[in-house]
């Protein structure tokens, strides 16, 4: 720490501590302000439990869809050069900067009941508005960037010569992908999936526009706060925060294992 004078170091420590406290204190406050017994009781309510399970389930589906389509996209972005590649990279990251309520409106315009896609899927019995598929696509839209970016980084860190050597050893492009590229990028992809899933769990804005019902946990929290007030909303908030923290710890665990 010879770089810093002790005064500078003290000042920076205080400023940094303020920011860390700003994040940590509200979260801790939420968890401790709700009595464990009340939290437990809230968790036993069918409505709360269903909302939480629906959130997990929808976000998991969104992650699976992003895995099937996003891993190939990430591989293409990492390994090939094509005109307009930078545009594609930009588009993948746009959901991060668009207000999520606006994303909800955008999805509604394309997947709504009167839209072409909405009607087409409707004929196949797949409804988006006020239905689980709507929740899934809302979560998918706002969180896919996390998976695609992580997977792309993972593929980029694989030395292309490993793939070339695999080809000279008799592996087809398909075998090379599954035996070399994918296993080597696996941890990045896995951590991208966890991050995406966690981001999907916490989505509110886009989901609430496409599907207020059936209620996912963040929407339920919003409704309890609106109609019943802070005291009823806090235990739900506490449960959501605890779950998100646990997910986050799992993510860090995976990331650390990578090193």
């Amino acid at each position: 720490m010879t770089l810093f004078s002790s005064r500078l170091s003290a000042l920076f420590t205080v400023l940094a501590a303020l920011l860390v406290l700003f994040i940590a204190w509200p979260l801790v406050r939420t968890v401790i302000s709700s009595q464990p017994a009340v939290t437990w009781e809230t968790l036993l309510e069918a409505e709360v439990r269903n909302a939480i399970l629906l959130t997990f389930y929808s976000s998991a589906w969104a992650t699976v869809i992003a895995f099937v389509t996003g891993v190939p996209l990430a591989y293409l972005l990492a390994r090939t050069d094509f005109p307009g590649k930078r545009w594609i990279e930009g588009i993948v990251d746009v959901p991060v900067v668009v207000p999520h309520s606006a994303a909800g409106i955008a999805l509604l315009l394309v997947f709504g009941r009167r839209s072409f896609l909405g009607r087409t899927f409707g004929r196949m019995g797949l409804r988006f508005v006020s239905a689980v598929p709507g929740i899934v696509i809302a979560m998918l839209f706002v969180s896919l960037s996390f998976l695609v970016d992580a997977a792309r980084e993972g593929f980029e860190s694989v030395d292309p010569r490993l793939e070339r050597v695999a080809r000279t050893l008799g592996a087809s492009p398909w075998q090379t992908f599954w035996r070399v590229s994918f296993p080597l990028a696996r941890r990045s992809i896995l951590s991208g999936m966890i991050l995406m899933w966690a981001r999907g769990l916490s989505e509110f804005g886009a989901v609430v526009i496409l599907a207020y019902h059936p209620m996912i946990a963040p929407v339920l929290l919003f409704e309890r706060f609106q109609s019943l007030g802070l005291d009823y909303a806090t235990p739900v908030a506490a449960i959501i925060v605890i779950i998100c923290l646990l997910t986050f710890v799992a993510l860090r665990f995976v990331a650390q294992e990578r090193e």
Binding site: D159, L169, G170, L184
Partner: peptide
């Protein structure tokens, strides 16, 4: 295509598969 040419390749910095042990590297092909 390269996989049907029957030519072996050895790179300057080895390009060993880091996720496989030595035996599995040799057995890859």
């Amino acid at each position: 295509p390269p996989e049907r040419r029957g030519s072996g390749f050895v790179y300057q910095d080895y390009a060993l598969f880091p996720h496989l042990n030595v035996a599995d590297n040799i057995a890859f092909g």
